[in-house]
Amino acid sequence: MNVHINTLLCKGCAFCVKYCPKKILEMGTERNKKGHFFVITTDEEKCTSCAICAAMCPEAAIEITKEDSNG
């Protein structure tokens, strides 16, 4: 798990979907407490932790981590 989306904060603007270089983010069909559709990850294995989605997120709803290569 590299991408941690705080679904309560997401407002579904889809800026992260537009700029993800691996195209592994997409708009979900569920709504959060505030009534907004939120973003989900489709193929998280491909994530390189570039953090472009987190940089473009206006609501600071995305947290990015990276697994150490030596385990």
């Binding site: 705080n6 932790s49 953090a51 987190a54 940089a55 600071a60 709803a61 995305i62 947290e63 990015i64 981590t65 990276k66 697994e67 150490d68």
Partner: peptide, 13 residues
């Protein structure tokens, strides 16, 4: 151990 690349700034609620 997972290393943090980006997280929410402390100065925001």
């Amino acid at each position: 151990m997972a290393q943090k690349i980006y997280s929410r700034p402390k100065s925001l609620m």
